[in-house]
Amino acid sequence: MQFTLDDEPRFPRGKRSGIGIIGCGHIVQTAHLPAYEKYGLNIVGVYDISEQAMRTVQQRFHVRHAFASVDDLFASSDIEVVDIATHPAERAGLILKALQAGKHVLSQKPFALDMHTAQELIQEAERRHLTLAVNQNGRWAPPWRITTQLVQQGAIGEVLAVTHLFDTRFEWVTGTVFDTIPHWAIYDYGLHWIDSIHCWLADTPLTSIRAREYRTPDQPMESKADWGMWCEFVYANGAHAMIRSVGCSQTQRDGHPFWLHGTQGIIRGSILGKGNDFVELERDGISSRYPLKGQWFPDGFAGTMGELLCAIEEDREPYHSARHTLRSLQMTLAACQSAEHNGEVVPYEEMKR
């Protein structure tokens, strides 16, 4: 079988909309702006409560404006899209203000801390005929992007099982802001992997979720966030998805292998490794490995912004719209709820609350 596969970001054919960025922290400096610079996007200006961070970004990436306030950024007629890359607690309020200012929004994930707020923001964007997208940049990470296209084109038939493994070591988290985030491995880090499961089993009714978090035996006393966890997602037709975080791996081949088993084949791959990323399809006794043209960082971040800009130009809903990613948020919050009760099953009806 022949498949149409392309893991590169796509951008509008017409003019590039002006982009304003709120938040000039590590992720903006190492991913957002390198991606936007690489693909020639139109960055009008930035704002951050830290003037030093803002000036550093302005000088390093030759950004035209460093705004004195977030209101000044919202007031700029040159800005059509606002990229919100702040800490989670501030995002919902900034999204609302951006929508009220008539701006399209790309929000870092998660775009809300609870389902009620998420629904309200989606309704506000739709009421104003504006686009609210979520920076689920893992969807454009090359191995996952190719995998999604293979699934959508029926390469393995019906998806029966998804398995993710974090074959890595989380000692880098100790002493960082991530170390203080409740349910960090699920809520912040694991959300990308949960979102991938949502994309690959999107039309299959979900029935229940379980999750557990635990400290690994060699985890240092000063670290706060659990390095070990697992999440289990059960579907009405018997399909099953699992994420397992080892978190204490001593491997030098650091990575995140994954497997999709279907009725007609298997997809194997690995992501976010040290030069070990790949994706391979096995079907009818033949294995095919596909070339990857980019990397999650920074190309995945170009993918999210490019898809948003294309959706605006083409007057359609983007693939990573807040409405489409709502199930991923719902699944993540349910997994956190289960982890708080040591792996207790959370039925789908409770997830919707």
Rank of each mutant, 00 (worst) to 15 (best):
F3R: 10
R10H: 15
R10N: 10
P12E: 07
I21K: 05
I22L: 14
I22C: 05
G23C: 08
I43T: 15
G45T: 12
V46D: 03
Y47V: 01
Q59D: 13
A66Y: 09
D72V: 01
D83W: 02
I84H: 06
H87W: 06
P88V: 13
A89F: 08
A92K: 00
I95H: 05
L96W: 00
K97W: 05
H104A: 12
L106S: 10
P110I: 14
E126N: 13
E126G: 08
H129G: 02
L132Q: 07
L132V: 12
N137K: 09
W140V: 04
I146W: 04
L150K: 04
L150S: 11
Q152P: 01
G154Q: 13
G157Q: 09
H164A: 03
L165Q: 06
F166L: 05
F170R: 07
W172L: 08
G175K: 07
V177W: 10
V177Y: 08
T180V: 10
I194V: 14
C199G: 00
W200M: 15
A202L: 13
T204F: 01
P217D: 01
P220H: 11
K224S: 07
K224R: 14
A225E: 03
G228I: 08
E232H: 14
F233H: 02
F233Y: 14
V234A: 12
N237H: 06
M242R: 12
M242C: 04
S249N: 05
S249K: 08
D254Q: 12
W259L: 14
H261A: 12
G265V: 06
I267V: 15
I267F: 06
R268T: 11
R268F: 02
N276F: 07
N276G: 07
E280D: 03
E280Y: 03
L281W: 10
L281V: 12
E282L: 12
R283P: 00
D284I: 02
I286R: 13
S287M: 14
S288M: 09
G294E: 04
G303M: 12
G306K: 04
E307S: 12
E314T: 08
R316G: 00
A334G: 08
A339D: 08
E340Q: 13
V345S: 09
Y348F: 13
